[in-house]
């Protein structure tokens, strides 16, 4: 098992030991591929702002968080995307803004996505269930095309079906497709066709954000798909990064697998941008 250095003493300790002590994981590059920002009508989310997020990231040792504001996935795509861009400009290299399309505003999506790409977004996020719109519907096509052209990560909450996911991933081979929440693990991964698509398609990945964690299920998923298909996400501020990261830090997998999941793979996906 690889070791990480401790800031305080110079001693080495495993990721598990650091997690049990609450020491920041300073020698592991960690990217949270799934987080939101801002207030939400549905329930009270304490301190949902970028400044406090960065404080929490510092405490755990999370280097970067990809953000898509809660407003963008609900009532107002444009103002919501501006919130994400503003947070990114206030915290360069720590907060990475993503663009969210509202596919119900079909005539505005292409211009809005282009505007966000010109402003420097690092990826795209869909929320098919809150926007009540199918992943394979025409309102999302401009976003697929731009993700493909600029070689961006595209994370979606909802992908219609494993077949639609596979077809879309093949149609836009330069985009990196991330299935939100699927990497938290599900019972009997061997029977789940979404995981088969992730194993077989080179540009499909799974995001770990998820409130629920049945015992041992995450390690079963890592074994089934390989660590290289799984990306750390915490869904801040719907959930807390301090909790969400524990699924990985204390899992019975190797430190090399943990490092891949925590940021190794996501760093590569973010680096292909053109």
């Amino acid at each position: 098992m690889t070791q990480i250095a401790s800031a305080a003493s110079g001693d080495t300790m495993t990721i598990r030991e650091a997690a049990l002590r609450g020491e920041p994981l300073i020698d592991t590059f960690i990217v949270n591929n799934h987080s939101h920002l801002g207030m939400y009508y549905g329930f009270a989310q304490p301190n949902p702002d970028a400044d406090t997020l960065v404080q929490t990231m510092d405490r755990v040792g999370i280097d970067q968080s990809c953000v898509f504001s809660s407003l963008a996935i609900t009532a107002d795509m444009r103002t919501g995307n501006d919130l994400s861009l503003e947070a990114a400009s206030q915290h360069p290299d720590r907060i990475l803004a993503y663009a969210v399309p509202d596919p119900n505003l079909e005539r505005q999506v292409r211009d809005e996505m282009q505007r966000c790409i010109d402003a420097g977004v690092r990826g795209i996020k869909f929320h098919t269930s809150l926007h009540d719109y199918p992943f394979g519907g025409p309102g999302y096509v401009p976003a697929f095309e731009l993700a493909d052209k600029h070689r961006l990560p595209l994370i979606s909450h909802g992908v219609d079906s494993p077949d639609v996911l596979r077809r879309t991933a093949r149609s836009y081979p330069n985009a990196h497709f991330i299935v939100a929440h699927a990497g938290a693990g599900r019972r009997h991964p061997e029977f789940d066709a979404t995981y088969t698509v992730a194993i077989e398609e080179p540009n499909v990945y799974l995001d770990t954000a998820g409130s629920v964690a049945p015992y041992g299920i995450f390690a079963q998923l890592v074994k089934h798909t390989g660590a290289g298909k799984i990306l750390y996400g915490d869904d801040f501020p719907w959930m807390c990064p301090t909790h969400q990261i524990g699924r990985i830090l204390l899992a019975p997998i190797t430190d090399d697998q943990k490092k891949q999941i925590l940021g190794g793979t996501m760093q590569r996906l973010l680096s292909t941008r053109q």
């Binding site: 997690a19 929490t56 524990g246």
Partner: peptide
Amino acid sequence: LPEWDPGMAITGLTYASFSVEER
């Protein structure tokens, strides 16, 4: 435990922003 994975419960505590006494 053992219905749920203890990892999240543990790091939610160890990385909380309070004193060691409160922890």
